[in-house]
Amino acid sequence: MLLPPFQLHEPTTVAEAVALRQLHPESDFLAGGTDLLPNYKWQLNTRPHVIGLHKVDELRAISPTKIGALATLKQMNMDGALWQEVPVVAQTAGLIASPLIRNSGTLGGNLMLENRCFFFNQSYVWRESIDFCLKAGGTACHVVPQETKCYATFSADLPGPLIALGATFELAGPSGTRRVPAVEFYKNDGIDRHAKRPDELLTFVHLPPTASQYRASYQKLRQRESWDFPELGIAVALKMKGETVEDLQIVANALECAPKLLRDIGSGLRGKKLTDAAIDEAAAAVETQVRPVKNTNLSPSYRKRMARVFTKRALLEARAGGPRRA
């Protein structure tokens, strides 16, 4: 499949990249290419300019408190310090797509992953046959036909644990850098997806120093152990004080247009013992609060039911100390 023609720019610093973005408002940033290039090959929202970030080496560094957006998923999955301090982040990076995709795919690319839908991730000819969709050139949604909102499913894995651990995203723009808490970054809309302004570049993920005090878990449902995007993902981060819960964050991921932090369920357990009964109750509550639609492979009602099972698994793993490197 041919890529559409575009002019490639190859900045070597973040400042250059941001300046190029300002110069060419009709452009996309390109990191690993495993999301953008397939979409370009399908003529999905292509742009005449592409700013390749492959020479911006300052964005590659990995530490348990600060990870560059160009760190590959494989590097994150292999990083000893990450496994030591925030194992759930290293583990989740290894659960994404296939080994080949992880060798190219980056942290930034996963955080900015385009939302997915049966009616969007198709070739131009296919989409033309249904008069396109809201997300790319059309006027109607084919998932929820009466709607004017896009229901494309949020399919990135890493935002789940990053939100649960209280990460912030650093954005570089023409007027300098700013930080946005991960929990505020995503919007529950398949088109207007996040708080990053078009002229900004996502550069770093900061994890609070306290993140290593949390026991966390990410449980992903997918049909095959490779390639497949999540049908759902549940991230939890748990901090205990003696026998009782000091803090608990639960994120339901890949069920709607954005990851969903279920604050009340987590805070409801504060100061309580995390008994099996309490875990069951929390898991049941998660099931009632998620609203999947039919645009992934497994049925929405099943995914909703599984939200309970996977919450329970995540809480049990977190209670037991979190994932360990194989």
């Binding site: 296939s98 049966f118 991730n121 198709q122 070739s123 296919w126 046959s129 249904i130 049909q223 095959r224 152990e225 490779s226 390639w227 497949d228 995007f229 492979n297």
Partner: peptide, 20 residues
Amino acid sequence: RGPNLRNPNLLDYKIPTSIE
């Protein structure tokens, strides 16, 4: 879905991997 094949690619047409 009507006349359209909903999964005309190797991501959505799920061939088992070496792990399965």
